[in-house]
Design a protein around this nucleic acid. Sequence first.
DNA 1: CTGAAAGCGCTTACAG
DNA 2: CTGAAAGCGCTTACAG
Lengths: 340, 340
Amino acid sequence: MANIKDVAKMANVSISTVSHVINGTRFVSEEATHKVKEAMENLNYVPNVAAFSLRTKRSKNIGVVIPITADETSNVFFMQVMQGIETVLKKNGYFLVLSNSREDIACEEEEIKNLLKRQVDGLIIASARGDHGFVRELLEDKEYVFVDRVPEGLPDVDCVISDGEGGSYDAVSYLIGLGHRKIGVLCDIIGEYPNSDLRYQGYRRALEENGILFCEQYVQQCRSSIESGYAGTRKIMEETDITALYVVSNVNAMGALEYFREAGIRVPDDISLVIYDDYSWTKIFQPPITVIRQEAFEMGCKSAELLLRRMAEQGAADKPEFIRMKTALIERKSCNPVHN
Amino acid sequence: MANIKDVAKMANVSISTVSHVINGTRFVSEEATHKVKEAMENLNYVPNVAAFSLRTKRSKNIGVVIPITADETSNVFFMQVMQGIETVLKKNGYFLVLSNSREDIACEEEEIKNLLKRQVDGLIIASARGDHGFVRELLEDKEYVFVDRVPEGLPDVDCVISDGEGGSYDAVSYLIGLGHRKIGVLCDIIGEYPNSDLRYQGYRRALEENGILFCEQYVQQCRSSIESGYAGTRKIMEETDITALYVVSNVNAMGALEYFREAGIRVPDDISLVIYDDYSWTKIFQPPITVIRQEAFEMGCKSAELLLRRMAEQGAADKPEFIRMKTALIERKSCNPVHN
DNA sequence: CTGAAAGCGCTTACAG
DNA sequence: CTGAAAGCGCTTACAG
């Protein structure tokens, strides 16, 4: 492998000159530039990143921490986010170093420390549940942005998230527009998952703004699993007379559908259904399901762009940025109008 | 940030000694070891990876190239593979640097070159379609293993794949066991995707070993999309009298189901169905669908383990290894017996 | 417009 | 059992 010295020798210039033509860091005569470029070409020269990194303290690596478990459903989402991240990093000459917190806050801290050892130039974090107080100190002279999830206990940081509140508001408003008044909601345990909470709040706001009385029994809190989605749906169906159900998570929605099938409840004839998140199965389901779609790929792009911008600013940073991305209601065939 | 010199000073030893206690590369007296460890602790010392890498030419980074497009379905699969890879890399102190070829061979070559610049210590590649002749030279003194897909035009390399042929054989044998004799198959264009071809071959072998005549009209080749799965299924249903359908890919299966719904064809009453790949939607579909499951996470683990082993061997490598992982038939409710 | 040289933080023969 | 020193391949003041 040729190094910068070999190039300098072949081009008959100093290594400074070679370095400067590579990095464009000072003027080099056209002639010298040409000779250097030719030499690099001939020698198939590739700059040594380790040396660069040792000298400059920059690694051109960005650490990405995602919180995925074996649960396949969320995987698709984060894969799309990462695709977005990778796309813009590549475009800017950065690499993506991947870590997984497994949805465990202690593990997340560990991973961040490891990434720091690797001297990543910045971090993009989809945070696990739990207090993120440790982050401020740990990353005090590092740029980082959070994606998809606002970290708990860490106000005023850069975030790129979906507008889950607004999306839910849209979903429930849509149902209301169809004439529904008794609308159930399936969400996670309230107070445990910020994203689920946001979506729940959107539900509340839609009711409120439309002058519909909130009814405690219409909300079922269930953990993220097919089974608990099933149980929650069963409960709400047996104990109330809702005409529509809004499910805040894909996994729970699968449980809801399983219950409907077993109980012989037909969508949309017996109940209307809207789901948050547009996975491809919702499209081919019988009936195709009306969903709120979030732009996962775009979120990834935006978070990487924001991070790169922060890194360029070099501490001259202004206020933390909070990017809330619009969601879209994809109308399919899981909702019927209701005549009151 | 403290460096090795600071540690040496505080511990009253030479930097050689510090280095050797860090790496365990030569005997150091208990006393010195203790002092060094204490100093490292006090100074919160973290070895500089760039310096390590510059000196040793090893980066502790493993490049991973996956071939994903916007098509969400395959994303889940590769995410699981990566989870497996990341898990074993982490356990061994390595990091995962992620690249995406976007299913484009030229892009894949580009990505490999970039990863090489980063001086990754090894590569795990899920190859895109196309001739991989370039790999041998490009990676001549690098360890690499292929995962999920056997690279075209590159014999005798380490591979970890699912036994798609065997899985398909199981699927079709299962249908035959149920009494089916007229079994259709939906696969990709034959000759284009090795994995699809393998699955097609399993179909052929199952027929053959059971003395069932192969029938040209029972196979539909369609590109990977819901639409073409739809079209292929329509064709096969309109032109033949099959009683069972085996679909080799998840996306096409979605198209098949869409057609069945629209045409009013009931699964399993009118037709039995088996799908290759177990995504969670197949479980909650009406009816739940019988599938062939492949162990994506495990494949990731195995490929990383193999790579690490190769790297440890240091060229003393024996024959390339070809790991073919068992698949499993998950019986659900999409197949009925047929009485001949 | 360009070069010589210091130094980033390590590992590793070499020497004792 | 341990240390002094070279050197990995760069960037970047400094000097001219």
